[in-house]
């Protein structure tokens, strides 16, 4: 970890000014990802603008019926907020499926959006990695890449976005509010994270100096038909191999509206709006779900066989979609606001 100075800002505009007035500065939220990255020398800011004192921790209803999540509200406070539990149980469950109680008590909503990939090579300075050091190559293309993606990849990067919460936010079609040197703006969730293309060093579409101030949820929370299915290498405290967040509006056995997103398979939470449309107006059935799953993975590309390589995610991902849609239509999963039980017996 390199040496740095630190300022504790007390307001968003002050934070933006502080950050832009220092070279090599970074925002410090809860620090659960940034401090980790700094200890591995993967991020080397020379100044930190600490956001801990900013008044952005509220969770409050919006006039349009939606809900605003303060960027500095912790993941734990968000998951256990009564309005979130009642109206957006998908989000609550998804947050609780990620990380640990200790991390969720500190990690912020804004920081969750900006956490960086867990690709082994990104995390190891001794290896080539285009995301960490553009132009050095991608070690994951041929090496062990169990953690890597199969959708929307490029020859320069096959890393995945590791967040659980973001998968639900994508399905919920949240809107990200940001403030920067040029004022405030909003970013649709689908546009927030990006695919690697030729510039895998860029995870998202934030401009220099921009700070996430809030996440707005639309009114529809799919509280009657939802699921978050997370498949991983142990029952808890592991990143997703594949995860699926589903929100449905049902009329009897007919799906009126469908939104779903996948985690663990791409550089961003993966949505396929054509696949969602295939569900809408249709009667829920295993056959339909299988067709939808096939559509989602039609263009998928695996990078090697065996358990160290990730081609298995294509079949696993399809099965996960089928299972998640079944769970959401039938609400057959265990729904417990205090514990994530999808992977428990």
């Amino acid at each position: 970890m390199n040496s740095f100075t630190l300022t504790q800002a007390t307001a968003a505009d002050e934070a933006v000014r502080d950050l832009t007035s220092h070279d090599g500065a970074a925002y410090l939220g809860g620090g659960t990802n940034l401090v980790d990255l700094m200890k591995y020398n993967l991020e080397r800011p020379t100044h930190l603008t600490s956001l801990g004192l900013l008044p952005l921790t509220d969770i409050s209803s919006l006039p349009d019926g939606g809900l605003r999540l303060g960027a500095l509200a912790t993941n734990a406070d968000t998951a256990w907020h009564p309005e979130v539990e009642k109206r957006y149980p998908l989000l609550s469950q998804t947050i609780l499926a990620g990380a640990t109680p200790q991390l969720r008590n500190v990690a912020t909503n804004g920081g969750n959006l900006n956490q960086r990939t867990r690709c082994y090579y990104f995390y190891d300075l001794a290896t080539p990695c285009n995301k960490r050091e553009p132009g050095t190559g991608c070690s994951a293309l041929t090496g062990p890449n169990r953690v890597c993606g199969v959708l929307g990849t490029s020859e320069s990067c096959i890393a995945t976005q590791p967040s659980d919460m973001c998968v639900a936010l994508a399905a919920l079609e949240a809107v990200v509010r940001v403030q920067g040197p040029d004022g405030e703006r909003t970013i649709k969730f689908d546009d927030y994270h990006r695919l690697p293309g030729d510039h895998p060093e860029k995870d998202n579409t934030l401009k220099p100096g921009e700070l996430v101030t809030a996440i707005d949820l639309p009114e529809e929370g799919y509280a009657d038909h939802f699921t978050y299915l997370k498949l991983r290498d142990r029952s808890s405290y592991a990143f997703a191999l594949v995860s699926v967040a589903v929100g449905l509006k049902m009329n009897g056995n007919t799906i009126e509206k469908a939104r779903f997103a996948l985690g663990g398979v791409a550089h961003k939470p993966w949505r396929d709006q054509e696949a969602e449309k295939m569900l809408e107006g249709q009667t829920a059935s295993p056959d339909l779900f299988r067709q939808v799953a096939a559509k989602v993975f039609a263009e998928a590309k695996g990078y090697g066989e065996g358990s160290l390589h990730n081609s298995f995610k294509i079949e696993l991902g399809k099965r996960a979609i089928v299972r998640a849609l079944k769970q959401a239509t039938e609400m057959s999963q265990v729904v417990n606001p205090n514990v994530f039980l999808n992977s428990n017996p």
Binding site: D124, G143, S235, N344
Partner: peptide
């Protein structure tokens, strides 16, 4: 039986999941 395996990248001659996040051992829930 179910979790432990250190991933060796033969091109790099290096173990890659060299941390507790990616070298999995059971947690309480397991």
């Amino acid at each position: 039986a179910m979790m432990e395996e250190t991933y060796l990248n033969n091109e790099l001659g290096r173990y890659m999941n060299h941390n507790y996040a990616e070298y999995h051992i059971p947690v309480n829930a397991d």
